[in-house]
């Protein structure tokens, strides 16, 4: 035993050190919620669904990077590789599935098992609790909305097939980040709103997916079958975030007849509406213990 070796008398004792306050509580709950959704520290069955969603989101990016690395561009043609804007649409199904998983897991679970009351007995209040949960849902969604295009950008850059100069690279980087944040914000707000209305995770998951797919089906039917104004598409909760992504990348999108300002306004409106639903719901929620 060296001279410096000591036997420490551990055990329960008082703590006089720094306490992180509300900021630390928000960080901790957000981090814990993300880990929970991704199945970290939980049995294997909880890891399957997030892993499948992440694989669906990242696998095409890896394939495209592989194609770009292994085959000459003049052999496969530039059109064989999707644009960054198209890629987000390409993995839309993974994003929707992930939406159906994330918000219900993050929000419903706490109400169902009573953890909400325990959290509200800490420095967190309802508002700050929701800030933590929104941060968790948005950050988790960005794993599939922001991660794959960033991976493409980095991989293409290393392969020499990325943007031409530093300026173009930075513009593309900002577009990738902006579109990832935008799509995550809208889907987070909508899925949190749906999840705030039920105490059953399965119902919430189905509800999130039904709201997204249902609004899209109804808007399409009204525009195409009932020949209503194209602006009815603004109520298409599934298509509008992807349309906004197209516009952020400077492309015309699937609905060029709708002005970009309207597309942006609709997305901001849906994000605010979803947030307001959650906020009102939690203000009125009775939490006694």
């Amino acid at each position: 035993m060296s001279d410096e070796a000591k036997i420490l008398d551990r055990g329960y004792r008082s703590y006089e050190g720094h306490r992180s306050g509300v900021g630390g509580a928000i960080r901790s709950v957000a981090w814990h919620s993300m880990r929970t959704v991704l199945g970290v520290g939980r049995p294997a069955r909880h890891k399957i669904f997030p892993a499948v969603s992440v694989i669906i989101a990242y696998l095409p990016a890896l394939v495209f990077v592989g194609i770009a690395a292994l085959l000459p561009v003049d052999l496969v043609g530039e059109e064989a590789l999707p644009s960054y804007a198209d890629y987000v649409g390409f993995i839309g199904i993974a994003i929707v599935l992930f939406c159906g998983l994330v918000a219900p897991e993050v929000l419903v679970r706490d109400r169902r098992d009573g953890m909400l009351g325990l959290y509200l007995s800490t420095p967190l209040q309802r508002d700050t609790y929701l800030v933590a949960k929104v941060a968790a849902v948005m950050t988790t969604l960005m794993i599939v909305t922001l991660g794959p295009p960033l991976l493409l950008l980095i991989a293409y850059t290393f392969e020499g097939s990325g943007p031409g100069g530093v300026g173009d690279w930075l513009v593309l980087f900002v577009r990738i980040v902006a579109s990832g944040v935008a799509i995550s914000a809208v889907f987070a707000a909508v899925s949190l709103a749906a999840s705030s209305l039920t105490d059953r995770r399965a119902f919430a998951s189905v509800g999130v997916i039904l709201v997204l797919l249902g609004s899209s089906a109804v808007a399409s039917a009204l525009v195409e079958a009932a020949e209503m104004s194209t602006n009815v598409r603004l109520f298409d909760l599934l298509a509008m975030p992807f349309e906004l992504v197209q516009r952020i990348y400077g492309e015309t999108g699937d609905f060029p007849e709708i002005e970009t300002t309207l597309v942006a306004g609709a997305n901001i409106g849906w994000a605010l509406f979803g947030t307001a639903v959650v906020w009102f719901r939690y203000r009125r929620l009775a939490v006694s213990r």
């Binding site: 703590y15 050190g17 720094h18 306490r19 992180s20 306050g21 630390g24 509580a25 901790s28 709950v29 814990h32 520290g41 939980r42 049995p43 909880h46 679970r109 098992d113 009573g114 953890m115 009351g117 325990l118 959290y119 007995s121 800490t122 420095p123 967190l124 213990r289």
Partner: peptide, 28 residues
């Protein structure tokens, strides 16, 4: 606070649960 109701996440280890709530209460 220890509530009457069973608020313990079933699939979490006891030490992780206690650690998490200690962090939420402000501990590093």
């Amino acid at each position: 606070y220890a509530p009457e109701r069973n608020v313990l996440p079933e699939d979490m280890k006891a030490v992780d649960f206690v650690k998490h709530l200690s962090e939420v209460r402000g501990l590093p």
